[in-house]
Design a protein around this nucleic acid. Structure first.
Length: 677
RNA sequence: GGCGAGAUAGCUCAGAUGGUUAGAGCGCAUGAUUCAUAAUCAUGAGGUCGGGGGUUCAAUUCCCCCUCUCGCUACCA
C-alpha cells in the first residue's frame, strides 16, 4: 500500500438554505470527524476542510420568499451550521463559505484555466427570458400548471405536489415568479464541460484502478459511465453566484455544481499559504466524505474537472454513506421530519457524544438505516452507561476508596493480568484496521470491546473480595484496571471526544497520542486521580417519550396540511372556457407503452373520429379493465408526441389526496362526442 | 421500463474462492455476583441466510427468474 505524507479530508459542503439534522451528521460529518481525529492523534499531517455551499437557485428563491437578499439567507445558515458543527465537536481545520472573496477568485481562475486550455464547448440554446424583469429565468423561477397533476404552482424543474421532475417547457401556461409575466424563449450562450471526453479515462481510473471503493459508490459510477456521459453546462443565467470571468458573459454565473467543489480548494487556500502541497502533491491522500446523493459529483464530475485543469490530485477514496431515516420515514426538511442539531442540544445539553455514538453505531454505511429514539436510548443506557461509564466508574471508585485516589504500584503480574494488558494492543490494531477501511461502525464496536474487557477483568479478578485476604494483590489489579481506563481515552477519543477529555481530567493523565494505545504504564504509580465524575447518565423513558411525541405532533400537523384541498384558481372568462372542447368518448383499445412505467396507449372513439391518446395512468388501471369504459376527454388539446407516439387529447382524471387517479365518467350512457359544458 | 445498492437471529450488522454445529453487539431467559449509575460476569434460547427454479456429491455462498426497500434515470399534456 502506498505511503502518504499528508492527508486532505473534505466533507460535503452543506447547502446554506437550512439547518443541519442528524442525517447530515450520521452520513458525513461524524465519520469524517472520527477519521480526522484519528489521523491527528497519529501525528499525521492532515487538514480537514468544509464550508457552506452558498450559491444556487434554491437560496435565491428562499430569499425572495422571505423578502431578503440571498446574502442574508446564507449569512444566517452559515452561522447556525458553523455553530452546530462546533457544538458537536466536528473539528474542521476550517469551515469556510463559497461567498468568500478567496472562493470567487479561485473559482474564476479555475474556470479561466480550463477556458484558456480550450476545455469548454461554447453553445447557444433557447431559454425562458423574463422581458419585464430583463433576466433569464432559472427553472425554479418559472411556475405553471403541472401537466401531470394539474397543480398550478409546479416549478420549472419539478412539481412538488406529485414529485415529477419537469423541464420548463413542460409547464402549461408558464409564468415568471419574478414579474408574473409570460416568459419568452431567447437565445443564450453557455459553456459546457465535455464529460464525454473524459469517459475513457474515468472508466480506467474508477472501474479498473479503484475496485476497492465501496460497492454502492463503485456501482453508481459504473452505472453513470455505462450510460454514457454528456457535456454539462458549467454556467447559467443568474445573478447569484461567481460571475463567469469573460467579457461576453454579462449576467452569467458559474453553475453551482461547478463552483461548489472548488470550494474545497478555496477553503484550503484560506486556511494555509501552503495549500498547494495538499492539492498538488502525489504524496497527499485526498478523501471525500459525502452522502450518496453526491457520489456522481465527487467521483465523476469533480475528478473530470480536476483532470481537465491538470495540476490537481484526485481523491484516493470517496466513502459515501447511504441515508438515515427517522422513525421509519425519510428525513425531510420541508416536512420538518428531522431531529435538528440545535434542538437536540437544547433538549439534551452536554450529550453530544451520546448522539455521536448512537449515529456512528448505526450509521448507514451499507444501506439506508433508521434512527429511532428507542434505539438512541438503548445505546445510551445499555452501552455508554452500562458498559463504558460503569467500568470507568467502578475503577475510579475502587481506586478512590482503597488508595485515596493514588495510582497503586503494579506488583508481579499474573497470567490473567498479562493477557488483559496484551489484549489492549490487539484492540488498538482492530480499531486501526477498521478505521483505515472506513468501517466506522465496526471500529467503534472494537473500541468498546476494551471497556468490555475491563468489566470482565474486574469481574474475574474480584478486587473487592481479594482486598480482604491479599491487599497487595489488589494494588496490581487496580493498576491494570487503570491502565485499561487510560487506554480507553485513546481508542475512544475519535468517537467520543467530549467524554474522553473529561475522563482524562479525572485520570489526571494529560493528552495522549494514538501511539500511546497499548502502553501499560500510562498511569504512573503514585499519581493522584481526581474525584470520579459520571461520564454518562441514564436517559429515562419520559425524555424519550417527549421526543417521540414531538415527532407525532409533526406528523399530525403534516397530515392536517395535506388534507387541505387545493386553493381556488384564478377566474377565467366564459370565452376561455368555451375554447375547451371537452367531450365524452369510449375506450376501444388499451395497451401499455413498452419500456415505460406509467404510460398507457389508448385508442378511443370520440364520436368524431378514432384516435390515439397516451396517458400516464398505467399505475392505477389495468389496460384490459379500461376497454369499453366511457370517459371524458379534452379533444382539442394540441397533439404531442410521447415516447414516439402521437397523442391527441387528454383524458380527464380526478386525483385523490393520496395521488390515486379516478376516471371522470358520465353518470349515464351517452353517445360518444357529446359535448361537456 | 433501464441501471445501481440492499434483503442473514426481535433490533443493528459481520460472514463464506460453495463443504462438518452460520457469527457479533443490543434485547430476551436462567444462574452467579455486589466494587459500580439494579450496572457487571457466565450460560442459554432464538435463524429452512427474501421467494422459486437450476448447476453440484454439497449452496445461504455460483447461475436464472420473481418479490420487496432505497437511489439514479426514462416517462405523465
Amino acid at each position: 500500500m502506498k505511503k502518504y505524507k499528508r492527508y486532505l479530508i473534505t466533507s460535503a459542503l452543506p447547502y446554506a438554505n437550512g439547518p443541519l439534522h442528524i442525517g447530515h451528521l450520521a452520513g458525513v460529518y461524524v465519520p469524517s470527524d472520527i477519521y480526522t481525529r484519528y489521523l491527528r492523534m497519529k501525528g499525521e499531517d492532515v487538514v480537514s476542510i468544509c464550508g457552506s455551499d452558498e450559491h444556487g437557485v434554491p437560496i435565491t428563491l428562499k430569499a425572495r420568499n422571505e423578502g431578503v437578499t440571498p446574502q442574508e439567507i446564507v449569512d444566517r445558515y452559515h452561522a447556525i451550521n458553523k455553530k452546530a458543527f462546533e457544538d458537536f465537536g466536528i473539528a474542521f481545520d476550517i469551515y469556510s463559505r463559497t461567498s468568500n472573496k478567496v472562493h470567487y477568485e479561485t473559482a474564476s481562475d479555475f474556470f479561466l484555466k480550463l477556458y484558456n486550455k480550450g476545455e469548454f464547448i461554447e453553445k447557444t440554446s433557447e431559454q425562458y427570458y423574463d422581458e419585464a424583469a430583463g433576466t433569464f429565468l432559472a427553472d425554479r423561477y418559472i411556475t405553471g400548471t403541472c401537466p401531470h397533476c394539474g397543480n398550478e404552482n409546479a416549478y420549472g424543474d419539478q412539481c412538488e405536489k406529485c414529485g415529477t421532475s419537469l423541464s420548463p417547457s413542460d409547464l402549461i401556461n408558464p409564468h415568471s415568479t419574478i414579474s408574473g409575466s409570460k416568459p419568452v424563449l431567447r437565445e443564450t450562450l453557455h459553456w459546457y464541460l465535455p464529460l464525454d471526453k473524459y469517459e475513457p479515462w474515468l472508466k480506467k481510473w474508477i472501474l479498473e484502478d479503484h475496485k476497492e471503493w465501496k460497492t454502492n459508490v463503485y456501482g453508481q459510477c459504473k452505472s453513470w459511465i455505462d450510460q454514457g456521459l454528456q457535456p454539462r453546462a458549467v454556467s447559467r443565467d443568474l445573478d447569484w453566484g461567481v460571475p463567469v470571468p469573460l467579457k461576453n458573459a454579462e449576467g452569467k454565473v458559474l453553475y453551482v455544481w461547478f463552483d461548489a467543489p472548488i470550494g474545497y480548494i478555496s477553503a484550503t487556500k484560506e486556511l494555509t499559504p501552503d495549500w498547494e502541497k495538499y492539492w498538488k502533491s502525489e504524496e497527499t491522500k485526498m478523501i471525500h466524505f459525502i452522502g450518496k446523493d453526491n457520489i456522481v459529483f465527487h467521483c465523476i464530475i469533480f475528478p473530470a474537472m480536476l483532470k481537465a485543469e491538470g495540476s490537481f490530485i484526485l481523491p484516493d477514496n470517496v466513502p459515501a454513506n447511504e441515508f438515515l431515516n427517522l422513525e421509519n420515514d425519510k428525513i425531510s426538511t420541508s416536512r420538518n421530519w428531522a431531529v435538528w442539531l440545535h434542538e437536540y442540544l437544547e433538549d439534551f445539553p452536554g450529550k453530544q457524544d451520546v448522539l455521536r455514538y448512537s449515529l456512528c453505531a448505526s450509521a448507514p454505511e451499507t444501506k439506508d438505516n433508521d434512527f429511532t429514539w428507542k434505539e438512541f436510548q438503548a445505546r445510551n443506557n445499555n452501552e455508554l452507561v452500562a458498559i463504558l461509564g460503569n467500568f470507568v466508574n467502578r475503577t475510579l471508585v475502587l481506586t478512590t476508596n482503597y488508595y485515596d485516589g493514588r495510582v497503586p504500584e503494579r506488583g508481579k503480574a499474573s497470567p490473567e493480568d498479562e493477557s488483559a494488558l496484551k489484549e489492549i494492543s490487539q484492540i488498538r490494531r482492530n480499531v486501526e484496521n477498521s478505521l483505515e477501511a472506513y468501517r466506522f461502525r465496526e471500529a467503534l464496536k472494537e473500541a468498546m470491546n476494551l471497556a468490555r474487557l475491563g468489566n470482565k477483568y474486574l469481574a474475574d479478578a474480584e478486587p473487592w473480595k481479594v482486598v480482604k485476604t491479599d491487599p497487595e494483590r489488589v494494588k496490581t489489579i487496580l493498576n491494570v484496571a487503570l491502565q485499561i481506563t487510560a487506554n480507553l481515552t485513546v481508542v475512544l477519543e475519535p468517537f467520543l471526544p467530549f467524554s474522553m477529555e473529561k475522563l482524562r481530567k479525572s485520570l489526571n493523565c494529560g493528552p495522549l497520542k494514538w501511539n500511546d494505545a497499548g502502553r501499560t504504564d500510562i498511569m504512573a504509580p503514585g499519581n493522584q486521580i481526581n474525584k470520579p465524575e459520571l461520564l454518562f447518565e441514564k436517559i429515562g423513558d419520559e425524555e424519550i417519550e417527549k421526543q417521540v411525541q414531538k415527532l407525532h405532533a409533526t406528523k399530525k400537523a403534516n397530515e392536517g396540511s395535506s388534507m387541505k384541498t387545493e386553493p381556488p384558481k384564478d377566474p377565467v372568462s366564459f370565452d376561455d372556457f368555451t375554447k375547451m372542447d371537452i367531450r365524452t368518448a369510449t375506450i376501444l383499445e388499451a395497451e401499455k407503452v413498452p419500456k415505460t412505467t406509467k404510460l398507457l396507449k389508448l385508442k378511443i372513439d370520440t364520436g368524431l373520429d378514432t384516435r390515439t391518446i397516451v396517458s400516464g395512468i398505467a399505475e392505477y388501471f389495468e389496460p384490459q379493465s379500461l376497454i369499453g369504459r366511457q370517459i371524458s376527454i379534452i379533444a382539442n388539446l394540441e397533439p404531442r408526441k410521447i415516447k414516439g407516439i402521437e397523442s391527441k387529447g387528454m383524458i380527464l382524471m380526478a386525483e385523490d389526496k393520496d395521488g390515486r387517479l379516478v376516471m371522470v365518467t358520465p353518470d349515464g350512457k351517452v353517445s360518444n362526442g357529446s359535448v361537456i359544458k
